[in-house]
């Protein structure tokens, strides 16, 4: 297993000192060092406001970072700038599933057009070549070819989630970042989605980084866990290690909370 992504000293600094008559708000994320192997699943856990979503957005380049660099397949990106040409390559390789899949779909544009967008902007394919690709992708994520013509309001939450997934893997990325992809789904759809992602991961060999509050799923699918608190990584390690021998106070708290929910004999 080789490293496909290397993150060095990724820092984000946010200070809101200009506010009048208000406490200055200072938030610093990182510096974060992270290495991701091919086909690996990494879970990011932590309390609210720990900077998990921010880290995800920094990784895909939705928000420019203050410092640091991301190395992908020996191709370095400065995380600070997202110039158009380097950005192009980055959209190819790191893709994201946003937290609210329903809000990340344009209500006035049919699913086919939404899925067409990454192809249209990042590849040289003609329209006639793109359509079969989109239809293939729709069936791959468990939708029908008809859904090409559907709008957001005609789809259920689970289907919207599938569309978001299809959009993310349309360009065959190396790394997939997901911000709470399973939060809004009911247990059946959730396990379907989990299985779907695991299957796609095997097929495409993509690394999957996801944020979740559901430690059950984390334990089930993650290879490695990152625990964050106040914008820093406080603990990092193999899933079983973290669950059995949590070191940091935050990790202990989280794992304990999880164990109190699950009957003891299932954990062991």
């Amino acid at each position: 297993m080789t490293d496909i992504m290397q993150v060095n000293g990724l820092t984000f600094f946010h200070s809101d000192t200009k506010r009048w008559l208000k406490k200055p708000e200072i938030f610093q994320l990182g510096p974060i060092d992270l290495s991701v192997k091919r086909g690996e699943t990494i879970a990011i856990i932590g309390e609210n406001r720990a900077g998990k979503s921010l880290l995800a957005k920094l990784l895909v380049g939705a928000i420019p970072a203050s410092k640091g660099e991301i190395e992908l397949n020996n191709h370095k990106y400065l995380a600070k700038y997202n110039k158009q040409d380097t950005q192009q390559k980055r959209t190819h390789d790191i893709r994201m599933i946003l937290q609210h899949s329903s809000e990340s779909m344009n209500p006035a544009v049919p699913v086919g057009k939404i899925l067409d967008e990454p192809l249209r902007l990042n590849t040289e394919l003609s329209e006639a070549e793109r359509k079969p690709l989109i239809e293939e992708m729709l069936t791959k994520v468990g939708l029908l070819r008809e859904h090409y013509y559907f709008y957001r309001h005609m789809l259920s939450d689970g289907q919207q989630q599938r569309v978001a997934l299809a959009r993310a893997i349309m360009l065959k990325p190396k790394v997939l970042v997901a911000d709470e992809p399973f939060a809004a789904l009911d247990p059946t759809i959730r396990s379907q989605t989990v299985n779907l992602i695991l299957q796609l991961q095997q097929e495409l060999g993509l690394a999957f980084i996801f944020i979740s509050h559901n430690l059950g799923i984390v334990r089930h699918i993650a290879d490695r866990i990152i625990v964050m608190e106040n914008g820093n990584i406080v603990e990092e390690g193999k899933t079983e290690t973290i669950f059995r021998w949590p070191q940091h106070a935050t990790t202990k708290k989280l794992v304990l909370a999880y164990q109190s929910l699950v009957p003891q004999h299932t954990i062991r």
């Binding site: 959209t91 994201m96 809000e103 990340s104 344009n106 057009k113 967008e117 902007l121 990042n122």
Partner: peptide, 21 residues
């Protein structure tokens, strides 16, 4: 809105964002 962010992550520039989203 978030779907604009999603399109931006697809690599759309401002003009494309306006026309298509």
């Amino acid at each position: 809105k978030e779907y604009i962010l999603a399109s931006r992550l697809d690599g759309a520039n401002k003009w494309q964002l306006f026309v298509h989203s």
